[in-house]
Design a protein around this nucleic acid. Sequence first.
DNA 1: TGCCATCCTTACCGAGCGGTACAATCTCTG
DNA 2: CAGAGATTGTACCGCTCGGTAAGGATGGCA
Lengths: 199, 199
Amino acid sequence: MTAGRKRSFDEEVALEAAMQVFWRKGYSGASLTDLTQGMGINKPSMYSAFGNKEALFIRAAERYMARRAGTVLKYLDVSELSLRQRLEKTMQLIVTQQCDPDTPLGCLVVTSQGEVAGGDLPEKASELLDKMGNQTKQAFARVIRSAPEAQEKGLSERADVLALSLATTLRGTASMARAGVPYAELEPVIDCSLSGIGL
Amino acid sequence: MTAGRKRSFDEEVALEAAMQVFWRKGYSGASLTDLTQGMGINKPSMYSAFGNKEALFIRAAERYMARRAGTVLKYLDVSELSLRQRLEKTMQLIVTQQCDPDTPLGCLVVTSQGEVAGGDLPEKASELLDKMGNQTKQAFARVIRSAPEAQEKGLSERADVLALSLATTLRGTASMARAGVPYAELEPVIDCSLSGIGL
DNA sequence: TGCCATCCTTACCGAGCGGTACAATCTCTG
DNA sequence: CAGAGATTGTACCGCTCGGTAAGGATGGCA
């Protein structure tokens, strides 16, 4: 078995490159030409390896959450830190990523979801983006609900509302970052946001 | 003079319709077919009346700011209300608009600006969106800087930072609204945001 | 070496894009 | 009523879109 010509590209490397293109240009904005050029392969290769544009986007978005957003959310469970410190550190890392000039500005999920309402996005991809958009909020809600400090201050019952407030702030910073606002200006916004929910 | 066939459509009505299409689908997402269909005219009519797609978008965006966002910002100067009340009322009106099911979800400026970084948008339109995106923030900064309550609390020197925080929240709610989050869930976010800047 | 499965390259498909040429249609002026 | 002038509808332009068919290039295995 396993006869035949070998692949001339690494699927993981190509997927990483595709993710960056989607991140920079969104789903509709990223043409097959943009994608295959960034991936260093041509269309039939990408088609046989990933299926089609939508499937490639879904793989790329899953990779984005796993590699970028996912690793950051681990800081929420560092038990030596206070709730405030954990949330602050996590949000700082996310906004730093949004503003990092070495990667595309903003957030892949937020940017792509902006295209959803117009009907430009396939349904499967749209549902995935919804789920990913809620993931951060749910992680915040979980850690707020279970933190002793929050229970003392009576914040736990409102955990969902407060988490939505933080998640909304991060969507705002993603939009600001994409418009070119630097991290230095956005950092105080995190502080305000945390103060606003009583931390 | 003034000979020739009469226009069969009202330019203001057509522009309002075009604005709604751009609002719903963004700049790139709105095709000429979408636009002319929504406006109830055909392509040569729109071309002779507005020039081209970019010029139409600029007119539509200016109308959006003047008719939608602009009228709301007037509430910032109602001197009978406290600073907190004025900001809260204004933000509530903006978020209400973002969530209004009778108009497209979210904010035309925020949605369209998400497409900028990809290079899909002409430069003139991009600059205009930048200016409009800052308009709200600057209005907030102005009213915070000049409010006696803010001066007492020492907030005036940080007016720009605090205004950015509020503007960031509103970009976040625009993104949330576009993803389908209803006003009832977003309203408490406004309260958190204002508490967060010390009001 | 010969076979064959797999991949890469080129060239192409139908559809939709933004934009326009042209002629038919309408309306006001002389 | 004749004719000039502006707007209309139709049909089309070159281009790019996502996606694919066909054949040459490359490899493992007998």
